[in-house]
Design a protein around this nucleic acid. Sequence first.
RNA 1: GCCGGUGUAGCUCAGUCGGUAGAGCGGCAGUUUUGUAAACUGCGGGUCGCAGGUUCGAUUCCUGUCGCCGGCUCCA
Length: 645
Amino acid sequence: MSSLQVTLPDGSVKSVAPGTSALDIATGISPRLADAAIVAKVDGQLYDLTRPLEADCTLQILTTKDPEALEVYRHSAAHLCAAAVLELFPETKLGIGPPIENGFYYDFDRPTHFTPEDLERIEAKMNELQAKALTFERRLIGKQEGIEKYTAMNEPMKVELITEKADDPFTEYTLGPDFIDFCRGPHVPNTSKIKAYKLLSVAGAYWKGDEKNKQLQRIYATAWFTKKELDDYLHKLEEAKKRDHRKIGKELDLFSIQELAGPGLIFFHPKGGIIRKQLEDWMRDAYLKRGYSLVYTPHVMRRDLWKTSGHANFYSENMFSVMELDDAEYQLKPMNCPGHILIYKDGQHSYRDLPVRLGELGTVYRYERSGTMHGLLRVRGFTQDDAHIFCMPSQIEDEIVNCLDFAKDTLNTFGFTQYKAEISTWDNGASGKYDGEPEMWHLAEGALRKACDRLGIEATVIPDEAAFYGPKIDVKLVDAIGRLWQLSTVQFDFTLPKRFELEYTGEDGKKHQPYMVHRALFGSVERFFGILVEHYAGAFPTWLAPVQVAVLPITSGQNEYAQTVVDKLKDAGVRVHFDARPEKVNFKIREAQVQQIPYMLVIGGREAEAGKVSVRHRRKADLGVVPFEEFLAMVTAEIASKATE
RNA sequence: GCCGGUGUAGCUCAGUCGGUAGAGCGGCAGUUUUGUAAACUGCGGGUCGCAGGUUCGAUUCCUGUCGCCGGCUCCA
């Protein structure tokens, strides 16, 4: 038999005997490469390192530096987990076990539940199997034979998957002598490669993600190439826990959720209230600066309105139930759009008036299923910085540019420098679930893309992800520890103008239907507040901090001078806390630090005599003694500039 | 809504194999006048989430229910 020509990434060609594996070639190149190798890429397709090559090909050895290799690695770790589970709990049925961000999960079906102790045992068993360097072996099996085999193995979910998805023949992978799983692969050569993982939690998960199906037990785990990466990740989890807005919200007395009042309903305490006021004031001012009008609409409205808008039909399961009043049925608003539309409709519009931009910080109520609420991030009552723009087709591009520019401004103001944009399109209506004329979709989608181009925003296009009533662009922000949060959204709506028969008089004297754009930048004020808490870990920039300056006299002898300092700060509009308690200054400083107050003014006899203050910053510590007026000028300037540190 | 976990003082948590509970911090009172992250002493404070059941007796065991936590589904 003639030899195979294998082309390597550097262009060199190796001549090898048929049946040679990528691992053989790697070993031939260097033992270090063989050691770092995780998986191979043959003609662009992922291959097990040990799989024999059968034809001329290009070959790339993927090592721990490759993201694709990490996925394979995690997938192999998932198999290791499943093998450990089957050894300890042989009656368990296997679901699926894919790699995910940061690790993998594996779904199992078994009569009793995994306990935290079980997780420890499973992990210990994984370690045991790992140390044996069990090999992953790829096998081909005919589909019919496979179905019979997995039926005999009593693996009903695997049988279902094979029946639905498998090729004929399909691949399966063994791990050691006992474990076998239907799997596309590839895998690492053996378990000695799998070096750093940790089982994290068990959770219920529906088979195939459908809540009509049986609920399985999902083991979540994290897996990394090295112990260090694993430790870093676990450390990051700890860090995220420390930043949890529910924890900080309690520590800093920002907000609460009251059992007596109901879940998903937020109480802003005085300190949270001050911060929220900053967000809202900034947003309202920005509305006015950018040519929006501010409106207010009622919280309950007749059901007839929700029938006209369509919400009573397609959104009813998310709405609070109907209230029967004397004259009619009423319902709490789940969205602000119909209210704004009524304002638009209450009068005639000439093309000269457009665009009309109606903005509101509108509080909406949505029925969220119990078990879905989460602090401030997922609630039943929340306030949208919501606006609706009614405009002519010729105006939509500029309007989208304005919206996105506004979104960028919002992000920058609140200290976010990184973000991602996603355009959701109708994919030429292929799926048939969309409303509106094709030309409207094309025009709107074009406007979204062009607006991004004009602003230099890089946007990913997600086909067939649009709402049925129009395409949209979502902006997601990246926070201080690299997490992604859904924030702003700008959406076209082709349905509501039609349902409400909106119109304007055009240059031609005829009636036309305006385009409608729905947009929210914070998204929800509550959620944005929660994101801010986590982003800053409670250490809000001075302009947002509930208390901006703490004045701390060392003894009561300085109280009088300290009071004048406090008064001048208050006069300048600075939020100041005067701690005149007869406590040690160390104690007062500690309290101010714990409360993340940006500035502490320590005032002793020396400062009082000289009209100075000793400035301590919560992060930079002691900044030294300065004349009070100098500090006042500095802090008021910092506040006015909305510096985010 | 579903699966699992959980609920003890304002907060963080311990405890009771069934005999109505304890610490630290915080609060209050007094003492301490203090120089850049916790002074000292004393005193209060809990129908052990709620409702039933078992029991002579339940915070503890059982059932139901509500909230919270981790997920699933859904989503701003």
